[in-house]
Design a protein around this nucleic acid. Structure first.
Length: 461
DNA sequence: GCGCTATCCTGTCAGC
DNA sequence: TGCTGACAGGATAGCG
């Protein structure tokens, strides 16, 4: 996934290898890469001599001695190989440039996302892909960035990825820049201050410069055409560090999806301004989640119970109708809301019905929690939720507290409650995701001990 | 016009 | 062991 530092590293090596070399012939092995007729592409390039290799944003520009420019974008997996007579073309070769003295410049692209276009030096800035590029972070001013961010409500991560705003940053470096700037990736761009844009630009320039010195970042398959890999991955502070400790505060790094991109951030260092912290209280069935929630509420905290949200959904006529219609089964009672007895029977008839139901209900719970989050003025919100990791509901939460108890205590509790048959799945789910939790409380003593344990955690938020 | 999502594409890996 | 589906993400088309 080459971004500006990787492209710059590749450009430097290309410049050394192919300057003043002449293209004897060209073979287009995959037409999808070349954005014009292959025959025109080939005829235009044969006999041309490379003059310089430059770069704008993530685009590589091969300039020839007759004013022609080959504009190449590597997208996700594009690579150049400089090969001698004896070397075989690498797998997934798409375009081969046969050079003088028997050498070849080969473009290979596993996923065929890369592009090649032809233009002239004079028309370069009119080429659509180049014309819309914003300045690189090295050339942008805080005033420019502030003008761009204040004009949109999009998430700041989305804006920084937009090449028409700033050219050169991609998913990896945006995560790094936001981490260093202590800005949450989902922060609405128009809520940033001018000082924030100063910080963002400063860190953008710093990160890109450091990565260029390190020869780029090798996450998956990136390498330069002389086979070297980048070294910046060892310096990454955020990208790809989900569930690892934040280098600044030791909180567990979280992963969410922003603008369809995997995004890693620190929930403690990168908080959304003026928005509450969302803290999930999860854990084993019968371990004391509800007691913890009641204790927090008594102490003036804002609390919600996901089970109550579900119960409210079942009592909503529109939702009840949607559930019955989607599942194609009558679950109404005479008041047109969900009938609990019918629902339990429906679930007992076929265990796979549970998944069908949660496919409808869990996204609605997520929506309701999003609404609560968006409209709240509280400092923090606690939500008791048995399955926070399904349907990406976890993306709403900054921290997770797990409550556990001994098997003996749990069975005692379940005997009193008398419904242990439904409990297996939540506990399985809980233990599957246990390693992602920020705090775990083991509750096998008194209620006061449980309350003390939760109170001791609160000062972290 | 803005904001969001699907699409392109294939190797890799986790889960069953 | 082998199959399936999710995921990786830069750029863009298309939809509401």
């Amino acid at each position: 996934m080459p971004e500006l530092p990787e492209v710059e590293t590749i450009r430097k090596v290309l410049q050394q290898k192919i300057k003043d070399r002449t293209i004897v012939s060209v073979k287009v092995l995959d037409k999808r890469i070349v954005k014009l007729s292959p025959s025109i592409f080939i005829n235009s390039l044969e006999g041309q001599t490379f003059n310089a290799v430059s770069r704008i944003g993530k685009y590589i520009l091969f300039t020839f001695k007759n004013d022609l420019v080959l504009v190449s974008h590597l997208r996700m997996e594009g690579k150049y190989f400089y090969l001698s007579k004896e070397d075989r073309n690498p797998p997934h070769s798409c375009v081969v440039f046969y050079l003088d003295k028997g050498y070849r410049l080969c473009y290979a692209d596993v996923r065929k996302f890369g592009t090649m276009e032809l233009t002239s030096v004079t028309d370069l800035t009119n080429l659509a892909s180049i014309a819309k590029l914003g300045p690189e972070p090295f050339d942008a001013t805080p005033e420019y960035l502030y003008q761009k961010t204040s004009a949109t409500k999009r998430a700041i991560k989305d804006v920084l990825l937009d090449q028409s705003v700033l050219a050169g940053l991609g998913n990896i470096y945006v995560d790094e820049v936001l981490f260093l700037s202590k800005i949450h990736p989902l922060t609405q761009a128009n809520l940033l201050t001018r000082n924030d844009t100063v910080t963002l630009l400063k860190h953008s320039v710093d990160v890109l410069n450091k990565a260029i010195v390190a020869g780029g970042t090798t996450i998956r398959t990136y390498q330069t055409l002389d086979g070297k890999t980048g070294e910046f991955q060892v310096e990454l502070l955020a990208y790809g560090r989900e569930n690892e400790e934040c280098y600044a505060c030791q909180s567990k790094m979280k992963k969410i999806f922003v603008a369809g991109r995997g995004t890693t951030y620190c929930p403690n260092c990168q908080r959304i301004k003026d928005k509450p912290l969302m803290i999930a209280i999860t854990g084993m069935v019968g371990a004391g989640k509800s007691s913890v929630l009641a204790h927090l509420e008594k102490n003036g905290e804002q609390v919600y119970d996901a089970d109550k949200i579900v119960a409210n959904l079942y009592n909503d006529k529109n939702i009840a109708s949607l559930i019955s219609k989607t599942l194609n089964v009558d679950l109404h009672n005479e008041n047109e809301v969900i009938d609990r007895d019918k629902l339990i029977k429906y679930l007992q008839d076929d265990i796979s019905n549970l998944t069908k139901l949660t496919d409808i209900v869990h996204p609605l719970v997520k929506k309701e929690l999003e609404r609560i989050f968006a409209s709240s003025n509280d400092k923090r919100i606690f939500v008791e939720i048995a399955l926070p990791y399904s349907y990406r509901i976890n993306e709403l939460f900054n921290f997770f507290i797990g409550i556990e108890t001994s098997k003996e205590k749990q069975s005692e509790y379940l005997k009193i409650r008398g419904d242990d048959f439904v409990i297996v799945r939540p506990d399985e789910e809980y233990f599957k995701n246990r390693f992602k939790l920020d705090y775990i409380i083991f509750n096998d003593r008194t209620l006061d001990d449980l309350y003390n344990s939760i109170d001791n955690i609160l000062h972290h938020f």
